[in-house]
Design a protein around this nucleic acid. Sequence first.
DNA 1: CGAGTTGCTTGACGATCTCAAGCATCCATG
DNA 2: CATGGATGCTTGAGATCGTCAAGCAACTCG
Lengths: 159, 159
Amino acid sequence: MVNDIKLLSTLEAMTGPTPHPPTKAQLLELVAALGTAQWQDFAAAAARHGLTSVQAKLLAQLKGPVPMRGLAALLLCDASNVTGIVDRLEARGLVRREPDPSDRRVKNVVATDEGHETIRRVRAEMQATHSALDALDEDERTALYDLLARLRPGLEHRG
Amino acid sequence: MVNDIKLLSTLEAMTGPTPHPPTKAQLLELVAALGTAQWQDFAAAAARHGLTSVQAKLLAQLKGPVPMRGLAALLLCDASNVTGIVDRLEARGLVRREPDPSDRRVKNVVATDEGHETIRRVRAEMQATHSALDALDEDERTALYDLLARLRPGLEHRG
DNA sequence: CGAGTTGCTTGACGATCTCAAGCATCCATG
DNA sequence: CATGGATGCTTGAGATCGTCAAGCAACTCG
């Protein structure tokens, strides 16, 4: 593919010389470092609102009503763990437990207005992440998005 | 920059049509999802070796001797927290505390041979991450590396 | 109806995390 | 040198997070 040569040289011109293609290990390390940095940015923003990162992560899942069991699946943890997290969020009025009309065993968790507003602010206050993305222009963001989208299938479908 | 147009069209040719540039929110969500997936891949690999993710993360920092204080800075947590984590790693022979020759207050933490070997295996067993990266060819990996490297400054230098 | 399954909670226990206190060691200033 | 203030680490209290086992209520199927 001839264009790939151009792509490579273009990027080298933008970012300084790339010492040949990166090792898989180097790429892995970079991905890990950025993932960690972004998570800490998220945790810090959540802490400013008196939330732990786990509480904020749970709150972020609540676009609609979600049963406890579903939250456990989303967070990849035991259902009994979700009970405690929701307890604390509910005690602060950020979340509500509603009975499921079609199955009386199920309790659906819903974010209150204050809950929605809080998680919206947390996302908005991830300054490090926002400013990092601002360093890219529109074409670069598109390129990044496409590359990351190609990584998704491999990472999500796991045992 | 004329070349960016070529870059964009090249990537579109490789990845299929992109429905216009992604929202910052979409990109953010994708980055978050992949960061989470990679972290869980890491945690699962660590668990197979009887390590918690935090223990594995600490072990991953030990290319050389690092004082307790330095570990606290790297992990962005309180020094008293590091004490407990190192205690448990030391009890399993993965890590050693050595006195610092130039400052008797300091204890340097060093990975034992078994510690190095364990973290090496954990990295090698991150199957989901490895197979995700295998989906990219060499030029794409280079492009991804360069784009991520440009994100680094914004994310790392934080207050 | 009865046996098995599923959804949630509870209790026990360990790991992680922070804060306040404490001890030993440095270091800077007099 | 002496001493007061930093600095590095540990300890203990207390909260959250995470798992597992056990229990109860409700659903499902025969």
